[in-house]
Computed example of a mutant assay.
Amino acid sequence: MNWRSYYFWFLLLTVVAYGLFEYYRPKPIDWTPTYSNKDKIPFGTKATYELLPDVFKNEKVTQLRVPIYNYLSENPTLPKSNYIFVCREFTIDRNDQKQLLNYAKRGNNVFISAYYFPDTLVKTLGIIATLKDPMLRDTALVMNFVNPALSKKGGYVFAQDDGRNYFLIKKPENVTILAKNARNEPIFLKIKYGKGAFYLHNLPLALTNYYALPSKTSDFAFKSLSYLPVLPVYWDEYLKQGRFGDDEQSIFRYIMTQPPLTWAYYLILFGLLLYAIFAGKRTQRVIPVLPVPKNTSLEFVQTIGKMYFQQGDHDNIAEKKIQHLLLYIRERFGLRTHEIDKEFIDDLIQKTGLPRMDIELLFSEIAHAKRTTSLSEFALLSLHHRIEDFYERVK
Rank of each mutant, 00 (worst) to 15 (best):
W3T: 15
R4F: 11
Y7R: 14
L13T: 09
V15Q: 10
V16E: 13
V16W: 14
G19I: 14
L20H: 00
F21R: 10
Y24H: 13
D30L: 10
W31L: 15
P42Q: 10
F43W: 08
T45S: 09
T45N: 04
K46V: 11
T48R: 01
E50K: 11
L51H: 05
L52H: 07
P53C: 03
D54A: 12
V55C: 03
V55W: 02
K60H: 07
T62N: 10
I68V: 15
S73Y: 12
N75W: 04
P76M: 08
K80H: 13
Y83R: 04
Y83A: 09
V86D: 01
C87K: 03
D96V: 05
Y103C: 04
A104L: 05
N108C: 02
I112L: 07
S113F: 01
F117P: 01
K123S: 04
L131Y: 10
D133E: 15
D138P: 04
T139P: 09
F145A: 06
N147F: 10
P148S: 06
L150A: 11
K152F: 02
K152Y: 02
K153W: 01
G154L: 10
Y156K: 04
F158P: 01
A159Y: 12
D162Y: 09
D162Q: 12
F167D: 01
I169Q: 00
N174R: 07
V175E: 02
I177E: 05
A179M: 06
A179Y: 06
N181I: 05
A182E: 13
E185R: 10
Y193N: 09
Y193S: 09
G194M: 04
L200Q: 02
H201L: 03
A206L: 04
N209W: 07
T217D: 07
K223I: 13
S224M: 08
S224D: 03
L225K: 01
Y227S: 07
P229R: 06
P229Q: 07
R243N: 05
F244E: 09
D246C: 00
F252H: 10
Y254D: 09
Y254G: 01
M256T: 06
Q258G: 00
T262H: 08
T262L: 13
Y265D: 04
L267G: 11
I268K: 03
L269Y: 08
L269M: 12
L269K: 10
F278L: 12
R282L: 05
V286W: 10
V286A: 12
I287R: 09
P291T: 08
T296L: 15
S297L: 15
L298K: 08
V301H: 09
G305H: 07
Y308M: 12
Y308P: 00
I317R: 10
Q323L: 15
Y328H: 08
Y328T: 07
E331S: 13
F333W: 06
G334R: 03
D341H: 09
K342A: 14
E343C: 00
E343Q: 14
F344E: 05
D347L: 11
Q350I: 07
K351W: 05
P355R: 14
R356N: 13
L362E: 06
S364M: 11
S364R: 14
E365Y: 09
T373D: 05
T373L: 14
S376N: 13
L380W: 00
S382D: 14
H384I: 01
I387A: 07
K395F: 05
